[in-house]
Design a protein around this nucleic acid. Structure first.
Length: 519
RNA sequence: GGCCCGUUCGUCUAGGGGUUAGGACGCAUCCCUUUCACGGAUGAAACACGGGUUCGAUUCCCGUACGGGCUACCA
């Protein structure tokens, strides 16, 4: 019988959730949904020294923001609870004991200094791969070298110990990775990894195998950095007699820095000017020891659906030319087989493009909300705009926005009278410009036209026609006078929005500015 | 160093024994336009290298180079 698909995302609460982790979570989620399986979140907090306050909460919040919702998690529980390894601590020891009894693992009493000394000795002797292995374990303090009664005495006296796996001397370990095909490793290149630490906690290797077994995980989808230890995990499944329910493995290509040097790092991301975390995060800087604030994708204005779409295509391709995928379409098209093998360089420009695409699909009413929020948060206006006006502005700015904040940042002149003018005004300013503006000012003061872009345009054309001036000759300068800048949306709409009184004021300011700067 | 994984335009990728090697981002030029943007059109731009196998390899195999990962009582 086919087992129900169960996959897990297993982050470690040692800091904020990395964007690479987000992609891993996404792929797990997509695969689970595609196969009508379950997506589980398990917190891997076996290293108590690296625990970071708030990290777990951060991870859960980030996934929530992105809409990657688990079927089972520490928060919502599930049949396989608890979902924090620290809370599962009592469950691991018995499996380690089972291995010891079967001669597949052993106690080791070596101190950190002794291990260090061993490595140095081996390095001096030019041993290729200094490690605790089939050869060296015969020279160390462990239950394989020490007499049984001494081992017993040491254990009873409460002396610290670890439990190590006994790697077979000569054995080919193979695993059939869903993305990479057959991977073969010789056991002689593996070392006797610690399974149980001296603090009584399991290491990742044991905990992950035991938990995946107990949680009936069918597919392990994780980053490529785990590939080297995958054979060890396979061996553990064999040792524990769980080979028949061993999950399939899929090792994802890593997200690399834009320059291709190393896996995507916080430092490089900062250098290239993009976030590595989904949400804002505060941490202590390693060098300055000061608290620093790192904005996340959310704070920078990325929409979750756009970020997900971008991430999905980093290493996976549907095989068609389609690039814009809603989450349901991603699920529909997703398959592990279509994931690439090679590492992926991070290209924030593409992420921006996705954001722009998604932003444009939003309604004016929704976009108006971004505008209102931005204006309020940044104290641009004392009172909110009417929704009619806000939507008008949203409509006007829609085609030129990449981020929600662009709706007000790129259109500040709609709310504030310009105080400086782009230097291009000097060059563009001609006698014709002054003539048109003066005439325009006069006409505006007397006119009773309906105040809308259409009528304004008509009026302006009338004036230039009368003066026999080509409107194209003066528009650039007029734009700067009205907005302060050289580029922007339709100038007639801008005039409609700012209103007649404001427009009069700005024209007066412009004319005055010209005289003072050229006198 | 050792072990493992990888390599198609600058980037993300499609493709696959015979193709004008396709798309997207970015870039450039042009069109639209009161400017910018949007949109449209066009263009520059890739099979890492060397050996095989083959009538024919970018595609299959082997090397080399280059890149990445791992190499803890961290995950």
């Amino acid at each position: 019988m086919e087992r129900e698909v169960r996959v897990r995302f297993a982050p470690s609460p040692t800091g904020a959730l990395h964007i690479g982790g987000v992609r891993t979570a996404l792929y797990n989620y997509l695969f689970a949904k595609k196969t009508n399986g379950k997506f589980i979140i398990r917190i891997e907090d076996t290293d108590q020294t690296r625990y970071v306050e708030g990290a777990e909460e951060y991870i859960m919040k980030s996934l929530e923001w992105l809409g990657i919702t688990p079927d089972e998690s520490p928060l919502i529980g599930g049949d396989c609870k608890p979902y924090r390894q620290s809370e599962r601590k009592p469950m691991y020891k018995q499996y380690a004991m089972q291995l010891i009894e079967e001669g597949k693992a052993y106690y080791a009493f070596d101190t950190a200094e002794e291990l260090d000394a061993m490595r140095q000795r081996l390095e001096k002797a030019k041993v290729k791969n200094p490690s605790y292995n089939a050869v060296t374990r015969t020279q160390m303090k462990n239950s394989l070298t020490l007499p049984a009664d001494e081992v017993k005495a040491r254990l009873e006296s409460g002396e610290p110990y670890v439990i190590r796996i006994k790697i077979p001397k000569k054995e080919e370990i193979r695993l059939n990775d869903l993305i990479r095909g057959w991977v073969m490793v010789h056991s002689s290149t593996l070392d006797d990894k610690v399974l149980m630490k001296s603090d009584g906690m399991p290491t990742y290797h044991l905990a992950n195998v035991v938990d995946d077994y107990l949680m009936k995980i069918t597919h392990v989808i994780r980053g490529e950095e785990w590939l080297p230890s995958a054979p060890l995990h396979v061996l553990l499944y064999q040792y524990l007699g769980w080979e028949n329910v061993m999950p399939r493995f899929a090792h994802l290509p890593l997200l690399l820095n834009p320059d291709g040097k190393g896996k995507l790092s916080k430092r490089k991301a900062k250098e290239y000017g993009f976030p590595v975390f989904p949400l804002e995060w505060k941490e202590i800087d390693e060098n300055s020891k000061e608290e620093i604030w790192l904005p996340g994708y959310k704070e920078q204005g990325y929409l979750p659906e756009a970020l997900l779409n971008f991430l999905a295509l980093l290493g996976w391709s549907p095989g068609t030319n389609q690039e814009i995928f809603g989450i349901d379409e991603m699920i529909e098209n997703f398959s592990l087989e279509r994931i690439n093998k090679a590492g992926v360089k991070f290209d924030i420009d593409k992420a921006k493009w996705f954001n722009q695409q998604y932003l444009r699909t939003k309604s004016n009413a929704e976009l108006a909300q971004y505008l209102q929020a931005g204006l309020k948060e940044n104290n641009v206006l004392s009172a909110p705009l009417t929704s009619e006006k806000a939507e008008k502005i949203a409509e006007l700015m829609k085609e030129r926005a990449t981020f929600p904040q662009d709706f007000w940042k790129e259109a500040l002149y709609l709310f504030q009278t310009p105080t400086e003018y782009n230097e291009a005004l000097q060059q563009k300013w001609t006698p014709e410009v002054a003539q048109v503006l003066q005439e325009y000012l006069k006409e505006l003061q007397n006119t009773t036209i309906d105040w809308n872009a259409e009528e304004i345009k008509h009026l302006l054309h009338q004036i230039t026609d009368q003066l026999q001036i080509k409107i194209g000759k003066v528009m650039a300068a007029i734009r700067i006078v009205i907005t302060g800048v050289t580029a922007g949306p339709d100038l007639m709409m801008i005039q409609e929005i700012i209103g007649k009184e404001e427009l009069l004021q700005r024209i007066k300011n412009g004319l005055a500015q010209f005289h003072t700067t050229t006198a």
